[in-house]
Amino acid sequence: MDFISILSIFVMACFVGYYVVWSVTPALHTPLMAVTNAISSVIIVGALVASAAAGSVVAKYLGLGAVVMASVNIFGGFAVTERMLAMYKKKEKKG
């Protein structure tokens, strides 16, 4: 992909992000931060590329280090979001 196509995707995604995030209810802003945390760890893709490749040994271990950190975030972020979201309950209907 050339730079301009990538830039186009990026700019469009910024607009999508803008509208999607404004529609998030303020009550869920903490889970929003937790889940954005989890998904920004998609940086694990880069970490995997670095640790999978042959070539530089230093790069491989840096990559593995990044895999550990991103995994903490992915598992931790999604799990804590799930835990928080499970707590939001509606009023129980009587009867």
């Binding site: 790069a59 840096l62 990044a66």
Partner: peptide
């Protein structure tokens, strides 16, 4: 917790960037 998670994303990004610099062919 959220602050700690942010720091990990940041550090992971740094490590990936350094790795890309050291092994540009893989990237």
């Amino acid at each position: 917790l959220v602050a700690a998670f942010h720091s990990l994303v940041g550090l992971a990004a740094v490590l990936v960037a350094i790795a890309a610099y050291l092994n540009p062919e893989a990237f």
